[in-house]
Design a protein around this nucleic acid. Sequence first.
DNA 1: GATATTTTTGTTATCGATAACATGGTGGAA
DNA 2: TTCCACCATGTTATCGATAACAAAAATATC
Lengths: 342, 342
Amino acid sequence: MSLGAKPAKIEDVARAAGVSIMSVSRALRGVDGVSDATRSRIADLAAEMGYVPSRLAGSLAQATTNLVCISVPTLFDAVFAEIIGGMRETLSHAGLETIIETSDYDQSREAAWVERMITWSPAALVLSDVDHTRETRDLLRSANIPVMELWDVADDPIDMSVGLDHRAVGYEMGAHLVCLGYTRPAYVGIAPGRDRRSEKRMSGIAEAFASHALSLTPIHVDAAPSFEAGFEGARVALAQNPAPDVLCFLNDHLAFGGLMACEAAGINVPQDIGIAGFNGLNITNVLPRRLTTSSTPRTLMGKTAARMLVAAVRGVRTDRRVVMPVTLDPGATTLHRPVPAD
Amino acid sequence: MSLGAKPAKIEDVARAAGVSIMSVSRALRGVDGVSDATRSRIADLAAEMGYVPSRLAGSLAQATTNLVCISVPTLFDAVFAEIIGGMRETLSHAGLETIIETSDYDQSREAAWVERMITWSPAALVLSDVDHTRETRDLLRSANIPVMELWDVADDPIDMSVGLDHRAVGYEMGAHLVCLGYTRPAYVGIAPGRDRRSEKRMSGIAEAFASHALSLTPIHVDAAPSFEAGFEGARVALAQNPAPDVLCFLNDHLAFGGLMACEAAGINVPQDIGIAGFNGLNITNVLPRRLTTSSTPRTLMGKTAARMLVAAVRGVRTDRRVVMPVTLDPGATTLHRPVPAD
DNA sequence: GATATTTTTGTTATCGATAACATGGTGGAA
DNA sequence: TTCCACCATGTTATCGATAACAAAAATATC
């Protein structure tokens, strides 16, 4: 196509090739019913003319698109980037295109986005977490397209759900810490209401300690989840009286910030205080001592979800709920406490 | 809309309201030419019927979409997540939807993606970096839609370009290190060919040292840019003979890995060796000593690019090339060397 | 060589909206 | 009252493709 010329439409190609537009449509889509000779002639001509088919028109006629719309809370958290990475590969192999949105943990923003996306007749929709407005749930249920809820597993999924049992993960870590002999745990997270999954894990940890009549001190930093938030939260925690003997963090990033805060305060980890994170992010691989954390299978989760979606798009229904396994990594930022002297 | 019922079309709403479909179209789009009474009656009815307009049809009729397609090398690098974050806000205010792709630093993958995206008649396209295949450039030039090249500034942009002068940034850092008295610099990056921007910065650093007859040792780790790559690269660097007196890293993540490697090896930073990064990522805020680095304005870059795009979409042309400022942060992982004894 | 069958190609209706133009009603100026 | 302007609404053509059906050409069968 020469500069400034109007883009070629299917009709132009048809005329140039001396065939009907249906033949062009069939030839270029690889659909049966065109002789090899005509097909290659049309293909050459189309390439030469710089013909670009309009998906708008095509999708309208076919009443479907190959769009998969994905909403995640944030891209700043490597976790969601990894989940998306895992999904994308599988989806693109299946010829599906991805549209990504960040909701910033805001339900109403997510709801507005879902309404907009529905207007594109997407092949499927992916939401993170399982808390959605009533309207969103109703809209999606009636839209009759595959919907995947990720990261947490819904008790009653809109459609399908792949994720972790955050409460159980928290409980497992809590039980581990109890077992090590910690008695004054604190949890460092961000302002409540934003990250519900963090709260679930916290309640799991609290429950484990509670069953030994020990209570968990919650500490909320009013900031986005970040290294700094962990640093700040740890400082607050260390200033408490009595001081905690173990700090559980919302995730490894905060835990790293916490480690730095301890170092800055001259407090030795794990001798003086224990530190536990969540996720098993790659930063932990370069630390002088391995972080005590729960490793989550982000990429696998993405792949699993994508496979289920592809199947669903093709009309094959698989499981509705999949709970992914999490591995507790004992690490070296916690240790077996001597029997308390009190 | 009740479950299982066919989704309502504009025609159904029109019939229900006893008006023509044009009135419905006008009413719901907020276009002039409908009385307030009819408009609100139609709006209520549409909401009640769960009517969702088809953008496919709408965009086809209008011959444009509100889609902005963005390609970045990776989402694992916080830098691109921040640039996207900066763009997204401005774009969504302007009513533009974003489609994100990760090219994994692969030109041919980017090229294939551009071809696919063009078929959606997007409002604008955003590419990262400035190296594209000849076909991509031609296709985009002739497609006649706003195109933004980000992160690096192109000498001859396809259309518009906002980014850094990576070579100059490298030179500035190199000159700074020369000035501090370092004489045996090494650069730790990843396998060549993947991240061209890193290579530009390296050549800038090399140039600064070369003008004092000093040469830069390149060290390439065959891995994705990550904490581990920096750790590994630093280990390789430390094993060299003679050992470097300053390590420049591809970015702050690698630099952090390098810091950890030095700590693990019992090498004191900055007494025994200097460390310099790039970007000014937030991890540096929690380190015991500030990292010597060049701070880049990622969010601002995204915002700037988005503003230019929005203007272009509306037919207003602004600058073609914008070079964003970078601040050298001297930090505390490098120091003024005593005059060398040799 | 004539008919049955398959393959290739073309025609018409449709997807769900919007643009451009046409029409009918309302109110104010002359 | 009469005409004009303006606002609200409707009609027709169009956007660029695909589905479903119809016809023509090529091949197979007896």
